[in-house]
Write a protein that binds this DNA or RNA. Structure first.
Lengths: 218, 218
DNA sequence: AGACTGAGTGAGAAGCTATCACGGTGCGCT
DNA sequence: AGCGCACCGTGATAGCTTCTCACTCAGTCT
């Protein structure tokens, strides 16, 4: 008893393990059938349990999905940080490729974060914190770039509405570039992942590279 | 019997009317609860019918949703055409505002077209035809603009992969601009409609205008 | 006028989420 | 070491869903 390693009791460790196994099964199911068809019963069957047992671990279906969304956000933020940390200093191109790789690795995971929202849904506090984290990575990378062309009227608007950037020292032009980076790459990725380029024979990767070049040239 | 106005029998007219009423109720429901929560039973209740009655009009839930998607595509194409036809000659700015107005008018309808796809889904033939229609409007408007800056390497790629543009005479630069128009405005709209700009205090309309300006300047 | 087509119904199967009361097991504390 | 409790898992159950089927009734067409 000299030093209670009281961090986790056996019960807590078991509980955490079952929770992650449930989430793993859920991810498998989502990848093949989409989040809207996620079935707690099916997960329980796969795990050799009875349906109601899962309610010991998640309050309800929405609670499980919320946990998955939270993990997806966390995973996205980690992927973005990892991508920028690879080189020396913030690197918008590396960030872009990290984002794209993460999206392509599991399209339904991307859609859980950026896809169709259910009308009533409000993001919980912790995911908005992660959103800020990701936005900061983008702002860092944009601030490290040489300043772009002439200031637009939207730049002026952003100078007055930069509360969302926290106290980040990036100039309005960098704020604008970060937002464009986000919206433009999202537009491309979301259409690609949703299969809207299916009939067209151009290479989405080439267009992604072209958009990124344009963003960097700014 | 001199001239059978055989276009529609009474039965067919009644059937068509009930079908459209079902779809109207479905739209109301989708607007408030999202498409994933669409309930045939609830629609039947609202119409004072028993649940199974709806199966006379739509083979199943997916068939109803497919019909709604088809109508949404049709509505989008009409809105785009109307927007461009207002002025004299193709007008990319008018097209952009038509698109935005259509999206804001019913976000869930926008998401039915461009939102999270269910993994197995393949768009039926007729919606891909409408997609081509919309793309043609974009290409017309882009081809009417003064040619943009220096050709990028993606322009060269598009010169070799322009099958999706049919036999549209637009040069590769216009093809590129049409694709950028689509992906960039979609990125912006989809994030705005999904509420991802919620905490941020800038005006999405201003950013939309800025993106459009950048697109027009090329 | 008679026959047929098709709309709507109730019953019912199979699936889902979610709640509840109940048994057993293993953890922690004395 | 052993007692007690907290917690896990189960079966039963309610209420919802989609969807099928046999049946009835009404309107349409010949």
């Amino acid at each position: 008893m000299a030093e209670t390693r009281a961090t986790t009791t056996p019960r807590e460790r078991y509980r955490a393990q079952v929770r992650t196994e449930i989430k793993e099964r859920a991810w498998e199911q989502i990848a093949t059938t989409g989040a809207s068809a996620l079935s707690l019963n099916a997960i329980a069957r796969q795990m050799g349990m009875s349906g109601p047992a899962l309610y010991r671990y998640f309050a309800n279906r929405d609670d499980l999905i919320a946990a998955l969304i939270r993990d997806a956000y966390r995973s996205l933020a980690d992927a973005c940080r990892l991508a920028t940390e690879a080189g020396s200093g913030p690197d918008l191109a590396a960030l872009a490729h990290g984002l794209r790789d993460w999206a392509l690795a599991d399209p339904q995971r991307y859609f859980l974060v950026y896809g169709t929202p259910v009308p009533g849904y409000h993001a919980p506090e912790d995911t908005t914190a992660i959103t800020h984290e990701i936005m900061t990575l983008m702002l860092d990378a944009c601030a490290a770039l040489p300043p772009s062309g002439p200031a637009s009227s939207f730049d002026a608007h952003l100078a007055d509405h930069r509360q969302w950037a926290g106290d980040h020292p990036a100039p309005p032009g960098a704020l604008h570039r970060a937002l464009s980076f986000w919206t433009r790459l999202h537009g491309l990725l979301s259409l690609e992942l949703a299969g809207h380029f299916a009939g067209m024979e151009f290479d989405p990767a080439e267009m992604f590279a072209a958009e990124l070049d344009a963003l960097l040239a700014g």
